[in-house]
């Protein structure tokens, strides 16, 4: 692959990708207080990997984040979400009843905070895994994107 005329792109992307990933985690964990949450953070993480794939090539991205990992991540995300429901069931509450997680009276917020944090984590894993699987499925079919293709 010719790599001479994309030097600026590569240098800028290398600095930008960690910041994008960091921003995704800010969005994830600040979702209780400002706009954001698992869906947005999951897509932002996926977009960071996609940017890496676009700039450095899909094989390089697959070495960093293997397709096996992304599709397991999607399944694990849904399992985390459903698992919180079963956790609440085991504690004697209804499915996904966060108030029952720590046997709290109404008006106490520990269970709600923990429950929402964990399910948002599940959403993050599920969405980022599914989006990356979709991207790999499309991008992995193109042999190699040349500059003349545009």
């Amino acid at each position: 692959m010719k790599s001479d005329h994309h030097v600026i792109l590569r240098v800028v992307a290398k600095g930008l990708i960690p910041i994008i990933a960091l921003f995704a985690f800010y969005v994830q964990f600040h979702g209780d207080f400002g706009p954001g949450g698992g869906f947005q953070a999951g897509v932002i993480i996926a977009v960071a990997v996609i940017l890496y794939a676009l700039v450095f090539g899909v094989p390089a991205a697959m070495r960093a984040v293997p397709p096996v990992f992304t599709r397991s991540l999607a399944a694990i995300g849904v399992m985390i979400y459903a698992g919180v429901g079963f956790w609440a069931l085991l504690q004697g509450g209804n499915y996904l009843e966060y108030q029952a997680l720590f046997h709290e009276a109404p008006g106490e917020h520990h269970g709600q905070h923990i429950g929402i944090l964990v399910i948002e984590l599940g959403v993050l894993c599920g969405v980022s895994g599914a989006m990356l699987t979709i991207f790999y499925a499309f991008a992995g079919r193109v042999a190699e994107i040349r500059d003349e293709d545009w």
């Binding site: 949450g37 869906f39 969405v127 599914a130 979709i134 499309f138």
Partner: peptide, 17 residues
């Protein structure tokens, strides 16, 4: 709408596939 947008892109990619 937040969830609908995310589901929308997922179904869009199924259609494109």
């Amino acid at each position: 709408m937040l969830t609908a947008i995310v589901v929308g892109v997922a179904t869009l990619s199924v259609g494109l596939a």
